[in-house]
Amino acid sequence: MRIVVLIKQVPDMEKVKFDREKGVIDRGSAGTEINPFDLNALEAAVQIKEANGAEVVALSMGPPSAENALREAIARGADKGILLSDRRFGGSDVKATATTLAAGVKKIGEFDLILAGMQTVDGDTGQVGSEVAEFLDIPHVCYVEKINEVNDEDIRVTTDIWDSVYEEKVKYPGLLTVTKDINSPRLPSFRGKMSARKAEIPVWGLEALQEYLDETMTGIKGSPTMVKRVEVPPAIKREGRVWRDSVDAGVDEFVEILVGAKVVEAR
């Protein structure tokens, strides 16, 4: 069995700074990490590998520096990492990204399962997984929160969708996007780190993928949407009144504020 895990390198959202005046994101202000939801996808793949035997291939599209994210994926249990990187991939929107990733998957060849996080913390769209599935013409299930059974022909999963919870059976090859509830990702192991250091990470550009992808399908040219403007909205103005030394005064005054705001209806 072969499992492809889609990985994205994202800025560390707890550290990244946003310049409200200029409306820009200072990506340099924060380190990078693997998109947190993708770590859950990777962990799910590694658990299947441990229980049933599988080859886990981490696939990422990004700048050359995203190689680090793939090494980390190997340290956390992936067998291989492949990076799709080319200047001409730059500026890709959802469709161009999904098309490029689907081309990468086609070049990998046979696979049974693709796992991805339910969304990324920077792009925040949650759409790439389903589009990859459509471009590969395979079924997909979003918001998988539990893997119940891994069989030879299919996988049974629990998903929270359509205001309910369903158990679904997906035939291979299929794609799943997972939530944070599916597992707790493990930390890199010592052995994993050793393998990660030695691993060769193939970098596939447009030429390497030419059988499946041309220049008009990726990057800015292949993107039907474009970002016209970015604004960093001002934080909502808050009263910011904090009672630091007197609980009783705070309680009394705050309840009066609630009465004033008609949250508490005094008789």
């Binding site: 929107d93 959802v94 469709k95 999904a98 925040d124 769209t125 949650g126 759409q127 790439v128 997984g129 389903s130 589009e131 599935a133 459509e134 471009f135 997909h140 299930v141 979003c142 918001y143 929270d160 969708i161 359509w162 205001d163 993107s223 039907p224 949407t225």
Partner: peptide, 23 residues
């Protein structure tokens, strides 16, 4: 952008080869 809409719309957009802006 319900859970179902977010799973469905990308498939529709990809099939039509149009863009899709999320959420």
């Amino acid at each position: 952008a319900t859970s179902f809409g977010r799973s469905l719309a990308p498939r529709v957009a990809a099939a039509l080869k149009c863009g899709l802006t999320a959420d």
